[in-house]
């Protein structure tokens, strides 16, 4: 079973329905023992960093998330879930985050005012590595993004994929060992996004 962690940070229905359509057993939960028992974990989220961190704290999940990653469980971060695995976010006047990957979350500051914030829509992802989660997906495929802040990992080795927006080439996919984290929404990225989720459901966490 794949645990989709529910920490009151946005809507998880489409994540759940994406797995359902693939015939993959998934459960939306914030129960620590259910999450610990799951074969794999999806850490999604929409919204703002501070309330997300506050909710994790209230639910007693702040220590559990890094532990799941350390224990080697295949782990997929999505959107806000991806941002808050870094050390710090500039959102909400600065928020300390989980620090699973060194680096920060920065705001897009385009020099051209016609570049809209948030980035909303489909943008291309250039793969920096080969990875089991990319099986069957062409390099340069488009995925659905919706965000005003972007991940900026400190070390290049944690960048698995890159995307260009608002004067930045940012890490649209980060990862290390059994962790992969996408800034885009695979669950809303059509057939190609479903392929990534299906690959995740089969991934043993090695790469």
């Amino acid at each position: 079973m794949i645990a989709i962690i529910d920490y009151k940070a946005g809507n998880l229905t489409s994540v759940y329905l994406a797995f359902e359509s693939l015939g993959i057993d998934a459960e939306v939960t914030n129960d620590p023992s259910t999450i610990a028992r799951a074969s794999r974990v999806v850490f999604p989220g929409d919204g703002a960093a501070r309330s997300a961190m506050d909710h994790l704290q209230e639910l007693g999940l702040t220590a559990l998330i890094p532990k799941l990653v350390a224990d080697g469980k295949p782990f997929l971060g999505v959107c806000l879930g991806t941002q808050i695995i870094l050390e710090h976010s500039d959102e909400n006047d600065g928020v300390d985050c989980l620090g699973i990957i060194p680096g920060r979350v920065l705001r897009f500051e385009p020099s051209d005012k016609m570049v809209k914030i948030p980035q909303m829509g489909w943008n291309t992802v250039t793969f920096k590595v080969t990875h089991p989660l990319f099986d069957g997906i062409d390099d340069g495929s488009e995925f659905y993004f919706i965000h005003s802040y972007f991940p900026s990992p400190a070390q290049a080795c944690h960048i698995l994929g890159e995307t260009d927006y608002a004067d930045e080439t940012f890490a649209s996919i980060m990862g290390r060992e059994n962790l992969v984290a996408t800034q885009f929404h695979p669950e809303r990225s059509g057939r190609i996004g479903l392929q990534l989720l299906e690959n995740f459901s089969r991934w043993d966490g090695s790469c």
Partner: peptide, 8 residues
Amino acid sequence: VARAVHIP
């Protein structure tokens, strides 16, 4: 619709 399509 949400069950059937996986785009926004």
